[in-house]
Lab assay of single mutants.
Amino acid sequence: SRSVIRSIIKSSKLNIDHKDYLLDLLNDVKGSKDLKEFHKMLTAILA
Rank of each mutant, 00 (worst) to 15 (best):
Met41Trp: 14
Ala47Cys: 08
Val29Cys: 12
Lys10Gly: 06
Thr43Ala: 11
Met41Ile: 09
Asp34Tyr: 09
Asp34Lys: 11
Lys30Ile: 09
Ile16Gly: 14
His39Gly: 08
Gly31Trp: 07
Leu22Ala: 02
His18Tyr: 14
Ile5Val: 05
Ile9Asp: 01
Arg2Thr: 09
Lys19Asp: 01
Arg2Pro: 06
Asp17Cys: 06
Thr43His: 08
Leu23Val: 04
Asp20Gln: 14
Gly31His: 09
Ile16Ala: 15
Phe38Ala: 00
Asp28Ile: 09
Asp28Val: 08
Ser3Asp: 15
Leu23His: 03
Ser32Ala: 15
His18Leu: 15
Ser11Gly: 11
Leu23Gln: 04
Lys33Thr: 10
Gly31Pro: 03
Met41Thr: 06
Phe38Cys: 02
His18Val: 15
Ser12Glu: 02
Leu25Pro: 00
Asp17Gln: 10
Leu26Met: 03
Leu25Lys: 07
Asp17Trp: 09
His39Val: 15
Ser32Asn: 10
Lys36Glu: 14
Tyr21Lys: 08
Asp20His: 13
Leu42Tyr: 02
Asp24Ala: 15
Val29Asp: 01
Lys10Val: 14
Leu22Phe: 06
Ile5Lys: 01
Lys10Ala: 15
Asp24Pro: 00
Leu14Tyr: 02
Ala44Ile: 11
Ser3His: 11
Lys30Arg: 11
Ile9Phe: 00
Phe38Val: 03
Asn15Val: 07
Gly31Asn: 12
Lys19Trp: 03
His39Asp: 06
Asn27Glu: 08
Asp17Pro: 06
Phe38Glu: 01
Glu37Phe: 07
Lys13His: 14
Arg6Lys: 12
Ser11Cys: 05
Val29Ile: 13
Phe38Gly: 00
Met41Asn: 05
Ala44Asp: 09
Leu42Phe: 03
Leu22Thr: 00
Leu35Cys: 04
Lys30Gln: 10
Ser7His: 13
Leu46Arg: 01
Lys19Thr: 03
His18Pro: 02
Leu14Glu: 02
Leu35Arg: 02
Asp20Pro: 00
Leu26Ser: 00
Met41Val: 05
Ser32Phe: 12
Ser11Thr: 11
Leu26Ile: 03
Ile9Glu: 00
His18Glu: 15
Ile5Ala: 05
Thr43Phe: 09
Leu42Lys: 00
Ser11Leu: 11
Ser32Leu: 13
Asp20Thr: 15
Asp17Val: 09
Lys30Tyr: 07
Lys10Tyr: 05
Gly31Val: 05
Ser12Tyr: 01
Ile5Thr: 03
Ser1Cys: 14
Ile45Asn: 02
Arg6Thr: 08
Lys19Asn: 02
Phe38His: 02
Glu37Tyr: 07
Ser7Tyr: 06
Lys40Pro: 01
Ser12Cys: 08
Leu35His: 02
Gly31Met: 06
Ile45Thr: 04
Lys36Asn: 08
Asp28Ala: 14
Ser3Leu: 09
Leu14Arg: 02
Ala44Tyr: 06
Lys10His: 08
Lys19His: 03
Leu46Tyr: 01
Asp20Val: 11
Thr43Pro: 02
Asp28Thr: 13
Ile45His: 04
Lys19Met: 10
Phe38Thr: 01
Tyr21Arg: 09
Leu25Asn: 02
Lys40Gly: 06
Leu46His: 01
Ile5Gly: 01
Lys10Thr: 06
Arg2Gly: 05
Ala47Gly: 12
Tyr21Val: 07
Ile16Asp: 15
Tyr21Ala: 10
Ile45Leu: 12
Asn27Trp: 04
Met41Phe: 12
Ser1Lys: 12
Arg6His: 06
Ser11Ala: 11
Phe38Asn: 00
Leu26Gly: 00
Leu23Ala: 02
Lys40Phe: 05
Ser7Glu: 14
Leu14Asp: 02
Ser12Phe: 04
Ile9Cys: 02
Val29Asn: 03
Val29Ser: 04
Leu42Asp: 01
Lys36Pro: 03
Leu14Ser: 02
Ser11Asp: 14
Ser3Lys: 08
Ile8His: 03
Arg2Tyr: 06
His39Lys: 09
Asn27Ile: 05
Ser11Arg: 11
Ser12Met: 04
Asp20Ala: 14
Lys33Ser: 09
Asp24Gln: 15
Arg6Asn: 04
Arg2Val: 13
Gly31Lys: 06
Asn15Gly: 13
Ser11Gln: 10
Met41Arg: 08
Lys36Gln: 11
Asp34Ile: 05
Ser32Glu: 15
Leu35Ala: 03
Leu23Tyr: 08
His39Ala: 11
Leu14Lys: 01
Asn27Ala: 12
Asp24Trp: 08
Ile5Leu: 07
Val29Gly: 02
Tyr21Leu: 11
Thr43Cys: 09
Ser7Cys: 08
Val4Leu: 10
Arg2Cys: 04
Ser32Gly: 08
His39Thr: 11
Val4Cys: 11
Ile5Tyr: 02
Lys19Gln: 13
Asn15Glu: 13
Arg6Trp: 02
Ile45Val: 08
Lys40Tyr: 05
Ile45Cys: 04
Ser12Gly: 04
Asp28Glu: 14
Leu14Cys: 04
Leu42Met: 05
Thr43Tyr: 07
Glu37Lys: 13
Lys19Gly: 01
Ile9Asn: 00
Ala44Gly: 12
Asp28Trp: 06
Ile9Met: 00
Asn27Gly: 10
